[in-house]
Design a binder for these strands. Structure first.
Lengths: 232, 232
DNA sequence: TAGGGCATGTGGTCTGACCACATCAAGTAG
DNA sequence: CTACTTGATGTGGTCAGACCACATGCCCTA
């Protein structure tokens, strides 16, 4: 077993045993190296991996943001991983979109009305109506979809859904330039968002799920991405 | 931007541009370091991250298995990440199970009869009937479920489903020790597998989906895991 | 009292060295 | 001529030690 994997194992055990909890600080790299009798290099490789997994965040200097602290950002980490695999052509973009539809439809159906996440979602829609530029619009759109997923109360689905979005974020940005009429599209998307939120809030889960599905597939279809398996 | 992130970016670009493809070899660490004018340390940290992402595999020595080659194993990588996040208590095991049900039900519904993956699944079921020990049984079970997911033809769903399973693999192993009667459970599981496969092969997607859902929830319920949201 | 400046401790990077390993080629003994 | 040994080569893995940039907080000075 390689040395850095040993360090990784040790840190994972600390977390599993509750010695290290969310927001907690890891020992300094030099201290860990000495404690585990390994070089700082190996410790750093382990930390780097954990950072890539979204489990820790490393900060220089001293004080509040310094040191290596335990965080919980599976979404961004999974997103980066998926993005790389899309780059290798092993994961087709169409499959990403299809999975998004699957997860978000489920989330819409299960979303509980009156959740704080839904209230935040409503505010986001207001901001999107205020006429921001395309980039801001997409960012707000992303947060709205994540909020919707969170309202279903399943952290794994939320994380995966966010990661799928993140994996093709740049790609989606490119797509908006293919749209014939952004203003018209924006207006349609906003109306669809309102309809989805209304369906969720009135307890029409099935309806919300269908609206979400057509909302997502509609966007990618308009932008020129044909899902391979859309009609199966 | 940190140096190793720069290296990461460079490698990702090589992949995106098709300069590096699946099975291809990265330049040696020393060569990359010189080419990018960075230290070997930084190159190694980048490679380590890619390895954790399941994008490359590093091998020592010389010859076929040597050097750093591009692979595509998103499943194991995502699994490790999820496992760590489960350890931080940020992702509840119940949510993992619930998501498994969601993805596998979908896959069962969409699975195409006559796929090579399904034939492999049938062979796996035969092996499970041969009466292996518990560990082997669980490994075969895992492969059967993955094969089922693959038959749906969505690589992202397959990868995520495999990762969910991997994230709680050890946990599931512990659970088997809680079972009152392993022989009886094993027999039931094998019968359910046959029923699922039969439903898929006869084109009864909806039926297969229901069977899969009860198959999974049934196992965890018997082993003592109560899904938080099972009945919503 | 208010300000500057240094001590401290963090992660980030670099250098150069050595190791284990696997292959392959050259040389040598049969 | 064959078969085996031996060394050269190149890979990733690890290590020790140094220096840097940065952020804080204490201490000393004006």
């Amino acid at each position: 077993m390689r040395t850095h994997e040993l360090v990784l194992q040790w840190i994972e055990k600390q977390i599993s045993d509750g010695e290290l909890t969310l927001g907690g600080r890891l020992p300094g790299e030099r201290a860990m190296a000495e404690q585990l009798q390994v070089s700082r290099t190996s410790v750093r490789e382990a930390v780097r991996i954990l950072e890539a997994m979204g489990v820790v965040r490393a900060g220089v200097g001293s004080g509040k943001d310094a040191g290596t602290v335990v965080i919980a950002e599976p979404g961004t980490a999974l997103g980066s991983t998926l993005r790389l695999h899309v780059a290798t052509r092993h994961l087709p973009v169409a499959d990403i979109v299809e999975t998004r539809v699957l997860l978000e439809s489920w989330a819409a159906k299960r979303a509980k009305a009156g959740t704080p996440a839904l209230e935040e979602g409503a505010e986001l829609l207001d901001e999107m109506d205020a006429g921001p530029d395309v980039g801001t619009f997409l960012a707000l759109d992303s947060r709205f979809h994540v909020a919707l997923a969170q309202a279903a109360g399943n952290a794994v689905v939320s994380a995966m859904m966010a990661s799928l979005r993140g994996a093709i974020e740049n790609y989606a940005g490119e797509l908006t330039r293919n749209l014939p009429n952004w203003e018209a599209t924006s207006m349609r998307l906003r109306a669809e968002h309102r309809a989805i939120l209304a369906a969720v809030n009135t307890g029409d889960g099935a309806g919300a799920a269908e609206l979400v599905a057509s909302h997502i597939t509609g966007f990618y279809a308009e932008a020129g991405v044909a899902p391979d398996h859309a009609e199966h």
